[in-house]
Amino acid sequence: MLNVIGCILEPNSGQLTLNGEKVYDGRWLRQDLRRLRLEKIGFIFQSHNLLPFLNAWENVAIAHILAGSSTAKAKSRAAELLTYLQVERRMNAMPSQLSGGEAQRVAIARALANDPRIILADEPTAALDSQRAGIVIDMLRKVAAEHQAAVIVVTHDQKIYDRFDRIFSLRDGALETEASKAA
């Protein structure tokens, strides 16, 4: 599902609309899906997927640089995001020197670098203990609220279900149930 929403895989059928823009209707309607991902979608991975040869701020800045920013501007943006996520002290640390929670916060900062409207998170708490998992999810909720972004989290972790506004259950690739807090 994340592959389809992330414009990586072509859906078997149906339409795909991202932030009000129809991007798939029997065929891709945008030529440059890479640019679409870069500007509108932020990705958070199960095992943070930080680039091992870049330090924390460079990992965040790379997304901004790829969007066309200068290194100086990207560094400033990275510092801002890392401070927001309270890992500014680890700005120059390499991924191998970061704890699981720190690495995941750096990954969240990277996902936010270009102010995306949609954040896709694939099992973001799988590698974390329950306390840190709670912190990360709270952080994602805060990010969603403050950046007006939709956060879509795919998870098997039932302990964090109650922290989401809408929960969709998928079984064998088909939507089984939908529940919302409002309901």
Binding site: L38, N49, A67
Partner: peptide
Amino acid sequence: KAIATLKLIGAP
């Protein structure tokens, strides 16, 4: 994996 990540986040 790093290259896949770079591609996914939008690297040309």
